[in-house]
Design a binder for these strands. Structure first.
Lengths: 349, 349
DNA sequence: TTGTACGCGTTATCAT
DNA sequence: ATGATAACGCGTACAA
């Protein structure tokens, strides 16, 4: 089992020095004859440059990593889908880290940057950016783009850009819509409060209610995880506690799926009896029945923006941190399609 | 902006040679005192080994790549989801390549192995493994696991393992089921015939019909792409050509989604008028309405098997090629739930 | 036990 | 234009 050819092999075969080989291979000005001999030898040997050696020398890996909680979540899939082509186009390979939303794991990824196995990182920390995160980012000396909230006091010249959405407005869009179609008892199925989205959406829900002049009722709120089965559990709990609710605001689409399951199993008509709104506007929203009205937080746009920002730093060097905010929008579908008040449609199905 | 510390930096600070530093860092027997001084210096400097240099020296990158057509496809997401933890556990990082199913792109990935930027590769070639693929694999000298069909005559000692499913049996399961619930005019919405799954499913469809004593009718077959909108187009075409069909076999779940859209828009009851079966049994299948009966081809299992096989080669060196076959199974859901013959339920909805 | 010296495969500098 | 040579950071035979 012979080892692969190196520039040394080529040099011997072509009867020139390795320096010449390197020059030819990198297209530097070289005598015609030398070029031919080197190319020929390289060809015959099937030479391919060793990317590791090149990385060591060039101090760059041409690799970028994306770290998120769970690649099974359609939101992150949407991001990866946008990130990948942008990076690929620029000649970067993409590494994937699933952290399960574990803060320790996230920190591990950030600290790992010091190993220099990637040139940059896009990370979406589920539980927020702590002091330690910040320290790791600064220590990394590699550009990082954070998708999500970034704390106020970032140190001077930290190589961080930030892409965020405005879930506050997102929730507001949803509640305004529900209010406009006549719903007044709007339940809320949220994710964990110690996650960034969970906390933000909780606050936004209260705010939006207030703005609409609706009372905040603890009994209308249930907290679970950002998954379908958890959403179902939460919906069941909520329905038994507050059977009179006429709408459900869900903190993401997966939770909304669970809610739809439960409503169907309880024979409650959607949207006749209960209107449902999801969040993230994933591919799933257009698949359910009824199709799911959902607040888009621009996952794809955020992914693309993050990749673009990172690329800019990678290619053009340090600069002041930038923040890109992606505006949410509401996509109205079947689950809120009936403007009439509850009770208009028959119950059961 | 100082550069990061290296073993040389540590050696100076600790007043020892770089060899000692390396030894301590790698846990080789060293005098107590030396250990302390080195550790202390490393600590103070916040030393982290450079993974690139280490890779060059050790001739291994601790990276593995997974190449598939489209990370947007739930099938591949399911695979990644299984592959990731297996590799992570073993200390490998995961690289993702989306090839768009382009054969040139796939070949590029395979050839890229010679750059030695990964230690191994899992690839799922959409259009099959050609002569050129095989050559690239052999030339790569890095272990490769192919998810999907592998040609018969692989060269001796090629470092390839293979994970496949049996879509023939899968289709058979579906048609048997449809036949059992009384369907006789079973349409088929397939993907491109020049893809491996497309070709296999086309053949399997004919075979299964024959085994059931049903005639093969060209008019009942429509070919498109493996996407939802394409599935919808195909379904429309098929319905206008063969309005009398009482079941639809779809070559994957996305196509089935499109078919469900069209059936609903045509006011055909599912499964009353037309029963529908999908393939891949993705997360989507349990979300649609009615929920989608689907043939599981064990995406998760295939992913896990592939990762395990690759890992074995990575850790235990060369061995004879192995093949793992994952058996398909049928998950019956709402879209075929009504055993009665067509016409039993009212039309419209 | 410790240090010296070399190699991993490239690129880039500096003489020639 | 070309060749010898020095890095890049790490690991390890070998000698001391």
């Amino acid at each position: 089992m012979t080892e692969g050819p190196t520039i040394t092999t080529i040099a011997q075969r072509a009867g020139v020095s390795i320096a010449s080989v390197s020059r030819v291979l990198n297209g530097l000005p070289t005598r015609e004859d030398t070029v031919r001999r080197v190319m020929r030898a390289a060809d015959e040997l099937g030479y391919v440059p060793n990317s590791v050696a090149r990385s060591l020398r060039n101090r760059r890996t041409d690799q970028v990593a994306f770290a998120m909680a769970d690649i099974g979540n359609p939101v992150y899939v949407a991001m990866v889908r946008e990130i990948q082509p942008v990076l690929k186009e620029a000649g970067y390979r993409l590494l994937i880290h699933s952290t399960d939303g574990d803060a320790e794991d996230e920190l591990g990824v950030l600290r790992g940057l010091r190993e220099r196995y990637v040139d940059g990182l896009i990370i979406s920390p589920l539980r927020g950016v702590t002091e330690e995160h910040v320290r790791a980012i600064v220590a990394a000396r590699a550009p990082v783009v954070v998708i999500g909230a970034l704390p106020e006091g970032m140190p001077e010249g930290a190589p961080v850009d930030n892409v965020r959405t405005d879930s506050r407005t997102g929730v507001r869009l949803a509640l305004d819509h529900l209010h406009a179609i006549g719903r007044r008892r709007i339940g809320f199925l949220n994710g964990p409060l110690d996650t960034v989205p969970g906390a933000a959406r909780a606050a936004a829900y209260r705010e939006a209610l207030e703005a609409l002049g609706l009372p905040y009722d603890e009994d209308l709120v249930e907290v679970g995880d950002f998954y379908r089965d958890s959403g179902a559990r939460a919906a069941r709990a909520l329905l038994s506690r507050a059977p009179g609710l006429d709408a459900l605001m869900c903190a993401n689409d997966l939770i909304a799926l669970g809610a739809l399951d439960v409503l169907r199993e309880h024979g409650r008509d959607v949207p006749g009896d209960v209107a449902v709104v999801g969040m993230d506007d994933t591919d799933l929203a257009s698949v359910t029945w009824p199709t799911l009205t959902s607040v888009s937080l621009g996952s794809a746009e955020r992914g693309r923006a993050a990749a673009t920002l990172l690329l800019d730093r990678l290619q053009n060097g340090p600069r002041e941190p930038r923040v890109t905010v992606v505006r949410p929008s509401l996509t109205v579908r079947g689950s809120t399609a009936v403007p009439g008040p509850p009770g208009a449609a028959g119950d059961g199905r």
